[in-house]
């Protein structure tokens, strides 16, 4: 149903729908609680500075961007931008290959016909 790819991507509710369909013995309400708990616990881990590693998916890590002097792009006035923590995601090998179209037998997109390397061996 609404868990199908629509060309517009999947939202959290679409994800809940998809997982609920794949687990008919578990209510949709419970699936929703599980999905929310997963992301809440990941967010909390990042808040404490913990690194997250999900095998086959990727890893998350918080890095600190140093304070710097920036500029208001409208007025050109210098502004101080204080140091801040930013979450970074590094895709895992399996998912990286799946996305690029040559992993786990998933969708294969051919890039043939695109030949910008013209002339060079």
């Amino acid at each position: 149903m609404s868990g199908e790819p629509s060309g517009k991507g999947m939202t959290k509710s679409g994800l809940i729908e998809t997982v609920a369909e794949a687990t008919p013995h578990i209510s949709k309400r419970d699936t929703e609680i599980v999905v929310n708990t997963i992301f809440e616990s990941m967010a909390q881990a990042l808040k404490t500075g913990e690194r997250i590693e999900i095998r086959g998916f990727g890893s998350f890590q918080v890095k600190i961007r140093e304070a710097r002097e920036g500029r208001n792009p409208k007025t050109g006035a210098p502004v101080h931008i204080s140091a801040k923590r930013t979450p970074f995601f590094k895709v895992g090998k399996e998912l990286k290959e799946m996305v690029d179209g040559h992993g786990s037998g998933e969708v294969h997109t051919s890039e043939s016909g695109f030949n910008p390397g013209d002339g060079s061996a």
């Binding site: 868990g3 790819p5 060309g7 517009k8 991507g9 999947m10 994800l15 998809t18 997982v19 794949a22 086959g56 998916f57 399996e94 998912l95 799946m98 996305v99 179209g101 992993g103 786990s104 998933e106 969708v107 997109t109």
Partner: peptide, 11 residues
């Protein structure tokens, strides 16, 4: 489910 969706090129 997330991986399958991303493998299809969807966000």
């Amino acid at each position: 489910a997330i991986k399958t969706t991303l493998a299809e090129g969807e966000k």
